[in-house]
Protein backbone atom coordinates (compact mmCIF):
# COMPACT_ATOMS: atom_id res chain seq x y z
CA UNK A 1 0.00 0.00 0.00
CA UNK A 2 2.76 2.39 0.98
CA UNK A 3 4.73 1.51 -2.13
CA UNK A 4 1.64 2.11 -4.25
CA UNK A 5 1.07 5.53 -2.70
CA UNK A 6 4.73 6.37 -3.30
CA UNK A 7 4.46 5.36 -6.93
CA UNK A 8 1.40 7.50 -7.40
CA UNK A 9 3.23 10.39 -5.80
CA UNK A 10 0.73 10.52 -2.97
CA UNK A 11 3.00 9.64 -0.05
CA UNK A 12 1.97 13.01 1.36
CA UNK A 13 -1.42 11.48 2.21
CA UNK A 14 0.11 9.00 4.64
CA UNK A 15 1.39 11.69 6.96
CA UNK A 16 -1.88 13.55 7.30
CA UNK A 17 -3.93 13.29 10.46
CA UNK A 18 -7.75 12.98 10.39
CA UNK A 19 -8.30 16.71 10.85
CA UNK A 20 -5.81 17.49 8.11
CA UNK A 21 -7.50 15.04 5.74
CA UNK A 22 -10.86 16.64 6.54
CA UNK A 23 -9.27 20.02 5.86
CA UNK A 24 -8.02 18.91 2.45
CA UNK A 25 -11.40 17.40 1.58
CA UNK A 26 -13.00 20.66 2.66
CA UNK A 27 -10.70 22.66 0.38
CA UNK A 28 -11.82 20.57 -2.58
CA UNK A 29 -15.51 20.71 -1.65
CA UNK A 30 -15.35 24.48 -1.15
CA UNK A 31 -14.12 24.94 -4.72
CA UNK A 32 -17.06 22.97 -6.09
CA UNK A 33 -19.51 24.62 -3.69
CA UNK A 34 -18.25 28.14 -4.47
CA UNK A 35 -18.45 27.57 -8.21
CA UNK A 36 -22.00 26.29 -7.82
CA UNK A 37 -23.08 29.10 -5.49
CA UNK A 38 -21.58 31.81 -7.73
CA UNK A 39 -23.60 30.29 -10.57
CA UNK A 40 -26.72 30.34 -8.38
CA UNK A 41 -25.96 33.93 -7.37
CA UNK A 42 -25.88 34.90 -11.04
CA UNK A 43 -29.13 32.99 -11.50
CA UNK A 44 -30.78 34.93 -8.73
CA UNK A 45 -29.45 38.26 -10.05
CA UNK A 46 -30.62 37.61 -13.60
CA UNK A 47 -33.76 35.78 -12.41
CA UNK A 48 -32.97 33.03 -14.88
CA UNK A 49 -32.46 29.30 -14.32
CA UNK A 50 -29.44 29.46 -16.59
CA UNK A 51 -27.84 32.94 -16.74
CA UNK A 52 -24.99 31.83 -19.02
CA UNK A 53 -25.46 29.57 -22.05
CA UNK A 54 -23.25 28.34 -24.84
CA UNK A 55 -24.37 28.59 -28.47
CA UNK A 56 -24.66 25.04 -29.83
CA UNK A 57 -25.71 25.63 -33.43
CA UNK A 58 -24.92 27.90 -36.32
CA UNK A 59 -28.50 29.10 -36.75
CA UNK A 60 -27.66 32.63 -35.57
CA UNK A 61 -24.60 33.16 -37.77
CA UNK A 62 -23.07 35.60 -38.40
CA UNK A 63 -24.17 37.11 -35.06
CA UNK A 64 -23.19 34.11 -32.95
CA UNK A 65 -21.03 31.12 -33.76
CA UNK A 66 -20.94 27.70 -32.15
CA UNK A 67 -19.14 27.99 -28.83
CA UNK A 68 -19.95 31.63 -28.06
CA UNK A 69 -20.77 32.29 -24.43
CA UNK A 70 -23.95 34.32 -23.86
CA UNK A 71 -25.03 36.26 -20.78
CA UNK A 72 -28.75 36.38 -20.16
CA UNK A 73 -31.08 38.74 -18.34
CA UNK A 74 -34.59 37.69 -17.45
CA UNK A 75 -36.04 40.69 -15.60
CA UNK A 76 -37.44 42.28 -18.77
CA UNK A 77 -40.62 40.27 -19.13
CA UNK A 78 -42.41 43.16 -20.84
CA UNK A 79 -45.64 42.56 -19.02
CA UNK A 80 -47.91 44.86 -17.09
CA UNK A 81 -47.31 46.15 -13.59
CA UNK A 82 -49.76 43.68 -12.11
CA UNK A 83 -48.37 40.44 -13.45
CA UNK A 84 -44.69 41.16 -13.79
CA UNK A 85 -41.85 43.29 -12.50
CA UNK A 86 -42.37 47.04 -12.94
CA UNK A 87 -41.33 48.34 -16.35
CA UNK A 88 -39.72 51.81 -16.40
CA UNK A 89 -39.32 53.88 -19.54
CA UNK A 90 -35.68 54.74 -18.75
CA UNK A 91 -34.70 51.30 -17.46
CA UNK A 92 -31.43 49.83 -18.73
CA UNK A 93 -33.24 46.70 -19.79
CA UNK A 94 -36.65 47.53 -21.16
CA UNK A 95 -39.40 45.04 -21.82
CA UNK A 96 -38.65 42.40 -24.39
CA UNK A 97 -38.77 43.92 -27.88
CA UNK A 98 -38.62 42.88 -31.52
CA UNK A 99 -34.98 42.54 -32.59
CA UNK A 100 -33.76 41.18 -29.27
CA UNK A 101 -32.19 37.76 -29.11
CA UNK A 102 -33.73 35.39 -26.58
CA UNK A 103 -32.88 31.91 -25.34
CA UNK A 104 -35.77 29.52 -24.87
CA UNK A 105 -36.40 25.95 -23.82
CA UNK A 106 -39.33 24.30 -25.59
CA UNK A 107 -41.30 22.21 -23.10
CA UNK A 108 -40.18 18.58 -23.42
CA UNK A 109 -36.92 19.45 -25.20
CA UNK A 110 -33.87 20.09 -23.08
CA UNK A 111 -31.68 21.97 -25.56
CA UNK A 112 -31.74 25.76 -25.20
CA UNK A 113 -32.32 27.57 -28.49
CA UNK A 114 -30.89 31.05 -29.20
CA UNK A 115 -32.98 33.00 -31.74
CA UNK A 116 -34.10 36.53 -32.55
CA UNK A 117 -37.55 37.93 -31.88
CA UNK A 118 -39.30 38.88 -35.13
CA UNK A 119 -42.80 39.59 -33.81
CA UNK A 120 -44.51 40.15 -30.45
CA UNK A 121 -48.15 39.70 -29.52
CA UNK A 122 -50.16 40.93 -26.56
CA UNK A 123 -48.10 41.90 -23.51
CA UNK A 124 -48.62 44.84 -21.14
CA UNK A 125 -51.94 43.49 -19.89
CA UNK A 126 -51.58 39.82 -20.80
CA UNK A 127 -48.56 37.48 -20.98
CA UNK A 128 -46.23 38.54 -23.78
CA UNK A 129 -46.05 36.13 -26.71
CA UNK A 130 -43.14 36.03 -29.14
CA UNK A 131 -42.37 34.68 -32.58
CA UNK A 132 -38.67 33.90 -33.08
CA UNK A 133 -36.41 33.06 -36.01
CA UNK A 134 -32.75 32.15 -36.40
CA UNK A 135 -30.88 34.77 -38.48
CA UNK A 136 -29.35 31.98 -40.54
CA UNK A 137 -32.59 29.99 -40.96
CA UNK A 138 -34.99 30.35 -43.87
CA UNK A 139 -38.18 29.89 -41.87
CA UNK A 140 -39.37 31.10 -38.49
CA UNK A 141 -39.49 28.84 -35.45
CA UNK A 142 -43.14 27.68 -35.45
CA UNK A 143 -41.85 24.24 -36.47
CA UNK A 144 -39.72 24.07 -33.33
CA UNK A 145 -42.46 25.04 -30.88
CA UNK A 146 -44.69 22.50 -29.17
CA UNK A 147 -47.38 20.93 -31.37
CA UNK A 148 -50.15 23.34 -32.42
CA UNK A 149 -48.37 26.26 -30.79
CA UNK A 150 -47.47 29.28 -32.89
CA UNK A 151 -45.77 31.45 -30.30
CA UNK A 152 -43.51 31.41 -27.25
CA UNK A 153 -44.67 32.52 -23.83
CA UNK A 154 -42.05 35.08 -22.71
CA UNK A 155 -42.45 34.27 -19.06
CA UNK A 156 -42.79 30.51 -19.12
CA UNK A 157 -40.60 29.33 -21.97
CA UNK A 158 -37.90 31.98 -22.39
CA UNK A 159 -35.00 31.79 -19.95
CA UNK A 160 -33.59 35.22 -20.78
CA UNK A 161 -32.59 37.87 -23.31
CA UNK A 162 -28.99 38.04 -24.46
CA UNK A 163 -27.24 41.11 -22.99
CA UNK A 164 -23.60 40.24 -23.69
CA UNK A 165 -21.34 37.60 -25.14
CA UNK A 166 -17.77 36.34 -25.26
CA UNK A 167 -16.83 34.68 -28.54
CA UNK A 168 -15.62 31.09 -28.61
CA UNK A 169 -14.71 30.50 -24.93
CA UNK A 170 -17.73 28.23 -24.50
CA UNK A 171 -16.26 25.81 -26.99
CA UNK A 172 -14.66 23.96 -24.06
CA UNK A 173 -18.09 22.86 -22.86
CA UNK A 174 -19.01 21.65 -26.36
CA UNK A 175 -15.84 19.55 -26.33
CA UNK A 176 -16.64 18.30 -22.83
CA UNK A 177 -20.14 17.22 -23.80
CA UNK A 178 -19.02 15.61 -27.04
CA UNK A 179 -16.18 13.72 -25.36
CA UNK A 180 -17.53 12.76 -21.91
CA UNK A 181 -14.29 11.09 -20.76
CA UNK A 182 -12.59 14.51 -20.88
CA UNK A 183 -14.94 15.71 -18.15
CA UNK A 184 -14.09 12.83 -15.81
CA UNK A 185 -10.36 13.18 -16.47
CA UNK A 186 -10.43 16.91 -15.77
CA UNK A 187 -12.47 16.59 -12.57
CA UNK A 188 -10.30 13.75 -11.28
CA UNK A 189 -7.06 15.61 -11.93
CA UNK A 190 -8.41 18.74 -10.26
CA UNK A 191 -9.52 16.82 -7.17
CA UNK A 192 -6.18 15.07 -6.76
CA UNK A 193 -4.24 18.31 -7.09
CA UNK A 194 -6.30 20.08 -4.45
CA UNK A 195 -6.07 17.20 -1.98
CA UNK A 196 -2.33 16.79 -2.44
CA UNK A 197 -1.33 20.44 -2.42
CA UNK A 198 -0.86 22.20 0.87
CA UNK A 199 -0.22 25.87 0.52
Amino acid sequence: MDALLDQLGMSELRRLKPRQILGQVLNFMLILASAFMIWKGLSVAADSPSPIVVVLSGSMEPAFQRGDLLFLWNRNLGMNEIAGPPFHENATFKGTQVGEIVVYNVVGKEIPIVHRIVRTHQGKQTPLNLLTKGDNNHADDTELYARNQFYLDREKEVIGSVIGYIPFVGYVTILLSEYPWLKKALLGAMGLLVILQRE
Binding site: R19, L26, M29, L32, F36, M37, K40
Partner: peptide, 17 residues
Protein backbone atom coordinates in the same frame (compact mmCIF):
# COMPACT_ATOMS: atom_id res chain seq x y z
CA UNK B 1 -12.66 22.61 14.53
CA UNK B 2 -14.23 26.03 14.07
CA UNK B 3 -12.73 26.25 10.57
CA UNK B 4 -14.06 22.81 9.65
CA UNK B 5 -17.48 23.60 11.11
CA UNK B 6 -17.75 26.87 9.16
CA UNK B 7 -16.54 25.25 5.95
CA UNK B 8 -18.72 22.18 6.11
CA UNK B 9 -21.81 24.24 7.04
CA UNK B 10 -21.22 26.30 3.90
CA UNK B 11 -20.84 23.10 1.88
CA UNK B 12 -24.03 21.70 3.41
CA UNK B 13 -25.94 24.80 2.27
CA UNK B 14 -24.56 24.41 -1.24
CA UNK B 15 -25.41 20.70 -1.27
CA UNK B 16 -28.97 21.35 -0.10
CA UNK B 17 -29.37 24.06 -2.73
Amino acid sequence: DVRLALGFSACAIAAAT
